[in-house]
Design a protein around this nucleic acid. Structure first.
Lengths: 339, 339
DNA sequence: AAAGTTTTCGAAATCGATTTCTACCGTACC
DNA sequence: GGTACGGTAGAAATCGATTTCGAAAACTTT
């Protein structure tokens, strides 16, 4: 067993490269990492052999030495990945391809499991944490941690943490302004679950714009319910009964909007000619599958992920930050408001 | 700087525990890992101090030593996480809470990016790979790898790899048999994209059952199109025109089914009284949001993930396997077939 | 009490890469 | 030609945990 390369057909180590290139391990390391103190010819030789042997450095060893693992942990409650995946992709993008890898952990809404995942991630020496809540209400802070953490979508309840949340208020304004721009005057709002911060903020945004134009919502207020198509259908039927002259509906989510579209059709009201419909989330499969396509306010998950990545890098660089960053939304116009 | 505990307020290492407990590092290691050769009293002391100091072993160091990182890599093309997240959760479950952490990488359908992620994951010494395709067609094998890999949802095109795929054929049978059990005789099939293996397999399954009962599909064949609501609507209109007496429709996906339901309603056909509807995927938000709720064939993603986890463990234990494992589907009955 | 066993513990090597820090080389200058 | 110097390369320590192996301690046995 004097031949190490026979013992493990596994992977090529730096030692192998150094031996083949006829230099020492430190020299090989310096050459590969572009550090000075290596003659150009030597560096070339090392690079060439590394290439030839298909050398890939063991990230684990590097992590152990310099205390940086090049990984982030993302903890979420999002069972379907609707939020998590775009946010993850956005975060990854800031690092440049493959520089950072992300552990995705699903706590499934269970605090115990979350604690467990957290410990596991810290044991793996992640360089940062992204905590993705499934609703925009403030969630319990994880407290003081040995690595920077950023709360995305749901803000932390501790103002010493850094949170990134979508601008639901601004989204509401966007939706209302869009309808006003189209000349709509009699606007109703079928909202989501009142217990959700997001639902209330969206309502507030709509209200603000209407008030500024000396208008108010049909029925005098928004109608809160649940985040489902069924609620959209029911609410629409009642709404049209009491206010048959309405000409636009803002919906708390795309799912609600789907219900609204269904009900309007049953009631022989044309969209967008008789009634324009705007909703929130811009969940592609729902928004584009509808007839007509739904004009919807996009929460910009990927942008939130990118921001999270940037802030994590900044924090890793020692630049501590706290507070709540509000990420603007954007309106995606489709057939439900413009023919 | 003779006081190491001042230098880094960071984390508690095994050395710290050993020092405080008054034993050597190896002894502390043995005590914590439940290995023999340690007196009961000594072990107790070590365990107590570890607890008191909130010691969490550095997984990175352990990984470096014994060559096992306790991590898996999951590479997917799934932009929304519809497949990946349930599969990831299933895989994690097999390990027991937190024992395995999973790197989630989204290749976004880009081969270059996939290669990149793969290298990155191998550099991080993952113990296994789960490759999740976004369509059931066979995908290019990643070839010989230093760690076991399992292809989920989309099988590998190399028969020396191990793949786990949903039983689309069996799913088709389930759907057809369900309709026959309900006494339906005139069954049509509005399928998805013909270029997808899944679409064709589902059709074959339905055909098999009908043929076994000396029946055939309305129109003599399945109608292929695309995986969209719009296709469901269009196809239904044409179908009812040519075969107004149909009493059941099998849909290639929940999205198609949503279009079918819409169109049937426009045509004043009641579901399920006049026409029963069965679909595939059981995508909750679509299936339960519809009126009536969609009876749908569930692909059991989580079960596929669990199977993947088990097989990876087996492979890590040296038990090589190859071939394709077909994971059964299950029928979830809702209002679109039973009132 | 001496010899033989068993148990318990710790010194040292290991994993793979990085990072000093020192030894050496050749060149340049006086 | 000897000293000084910038530039290269390598020896050794390091990260934190594991593991082997030898030594010391604690018991038995005669």
């Amino acid at each position: 067993m004097t031949e190490p390369e026979l013992a493990r057909a596994k992977s090529v180590t730096l030692r192998d490269v150094a031996r083949v290139a006829g230099v020492s391990v430190p020299t090989a390391s310096k050459a590969l990492n572009g550090r000075e103190g290596v003659r150009a010819a030597t560096r070339q030789a090392v690079l060439a052999t590394a290439e030839r042997l298909a050398f890939h450095p063991n990230t684990t060893a590097r992590a152990l030495k310099n205390g940086r693992s090049g990984t982030w942990g993302l903890i979420t409650d999002d069972l379907e990945g609707r939020f998590s995946i775009p946010i993850l992709m956005g975060a990854e993008d800031t690092a440049g391809a493959g520089k950072m890898s992300v552990f995705l952990c699903d706590a499934r809404g269970d605090v115990i499991r979350e604690k467990h995942h957290l410990q596991s991630l810290l044991g793996r020496q992640v360089d940062g944490l992204i905590i993705v809540g499934s609703r925009t209400d403030a969630r319990a802070s994880l407290g003081e941690l040995p690595v920077p953490a950023i709360y995305v979508y749901a803000p932390s309840d501790a103002h010493t943490d850094l949170s990134i949340v979508p601008d639901n208020l601004g989204g509401g304004r966007l939706a209302a302004q869009h309808l006003l721009d189209l000349g709509r005057k009699r606007i109703a709002h079928i909202a989501g679950d009142r217990s959700y911060d997001a639902a209330r903020a969206r309502v507030t945004g709509v209200d603000e714009v209407l008030t500024a134009h000396n208008m108010e919502l049909m029925g005098g207020q928004a109608f809160y319910g649940v985040w489902s198509e069924a609620w959209g259908r029911n609410a629409t039927r009642r709404l049209v009964e009491s206010s048959p002259d309405l000409d636009a509906v803002v919906c708390g989510s795309d799912q609600i909007a789907r219900g609204v579209l269904d009900a309007l059709k049953d009631l022989n009201l044309r969209v967008p000619e008789d009634v324009a419909v705007v909703s929130f989330d811009n969940w592609e499969v729902f928004a584009t599958g509808a007839v007509p396509g739904l004009t919807s306010v996009d929460m910009n998950f990927e942008a939130m992920g990118r921001m999270a990545g940037e802030k994590l890098f900044a924090a890793m660089g020692g630049e501590e930050q706290q507070g709540t960053i509000i990420q603007p939304c954007r309106l995606v116009v489709r057939g439900s408001t413009c023919p």
